[in-house]
Design a protein around this nucleic acid. Sequence first.
DNA 1: CAAATACATTACCCAATGGTAAAGTGTTCG
DNA 2: CGAACACTTTACCATTGGGTAATGTATTTG
Lengths: 115, 115
Amino acid sequence: MPEHRDEVFRALADPNRRRILDLLAERGTLTVSQLAAEFPDLVASGISKHLMGLRAAGLVAATRRGRQQLYHLEPEALADALAPWLAKYEPYWSAALERLRSLAESGPPERPQAP
Amino acid sequence: MPEHRDEVFRALADPNRRRILDLLAERGTLTVSQLAAEFPDLVASGISKHLMGLRAAGLVAATRRGRQQLYHLEPEALADALAPWLAKYEPYWSAALERLRSLAESGPPERPQAP
DNA sequence: CAAATACATTACCCAATGGTAAAGTGTTCG
DNA sequence: CGAACACTTTACCATTGGGTAATGTATTTG
């Protein structure tokens, strides 16, 4: 069986999948149709497959509402997989870290939520 | 042509490639043979191909020394590709960020260097 | 200079991936 | 209840990716 971190990195390898994550990060919660609307050159089942990949990696989760699925980020999975790995490169990160720190110190933004 | 960030994420998708990066992060500078020694179940040309992938993504670079190539990390590429992307998830990162921040505040370790 | 060393490149193979179209499942609406 | 809706699953296809073996190219050494 594949290591969990491996699944996360593989999931992040595809630009469409990263865009799905970005959309969920921006807008909080989206249905499959709402997501699909953002990918004009992809058919519905394609989106679905990507969502399954992200779900397998634990990066997103969904709850049913009627006949739609409400997808949302599962940010702990992302953090848990990436942070320890990124930490190994900490000696090389001073500049980028500074940027992240100043972001953090300016006060964490609200977690976005769909209306 | 593929976007640079895409190349970086694709390069990171393979566990062997990530391990190469880890080794370079730990030990600073390594020849291809030294790297190959860490991958008993990979043949030399396999390592070479991975190194070319990492080089194409700008994540590593090499300098010749006689007939060997001294590979080292190119950490700015990693930071430049990942930091802006990670920043988008900053609202979700408080816990992981705290860990990184405390690491940073405990004083950045020396950048490792090969003898 | 010839042989050996240290890699890189090429040619090739198989498995995995991303994509589509079509069929399947559960839910709601008329 | 039947039709439409919102997805998911399956079947299938073309391309890519990771792997090896073989060949090529500098560089060093005997």
